[in-house]
Amino acid sequence: MKTCIFLSATATVLAVVIATAQAPSSTLVAASPQTQAQGQTAPEPTGDPDTGEELYTDIGCYACHGFEGQGGVTGPRIAPRPFPLALFIRFVRQPPNQMPLYTDRSVSDEDLGHIHAYLLSRPEPPAVDSIPLLQP
């Protein structure tokens, strides 16, 4: 009839695996890959964003991270600034958190490059101060 809700332990586990200095402030967004990647060298786009968009939906990334990679209760935000590609691939192959792993039998490194390019192509969000509905 119904099963449990995934409770993401992402934040804490990620913080252990990928050492960064920034203390998380939210259970949903803390220590998300893109947050962790801040300060690192910007990754080079290696794939095609359009192909990546299709793959991103087809292999189910959207299910936990949202169609825009904006994240949610089931998976952290991963766009528009994902991990550098090498780290991104390593994370997908060996996720240290609740994320189901994707082996190279499920998705190739090349396809992960396309997905990575799609995530990089996502627009930056509007400034929060410019959104009347989000004012305190």
Binding site: S26, V29, G66, F67, Q70, A79, P125, P126, L134
Partner: peptide
Amino acid sequence: RAEAAYGWNA
């Protein structure tokens, strides 16, 4: 609030 802005116009 900052997090809510991601995907705001999606």
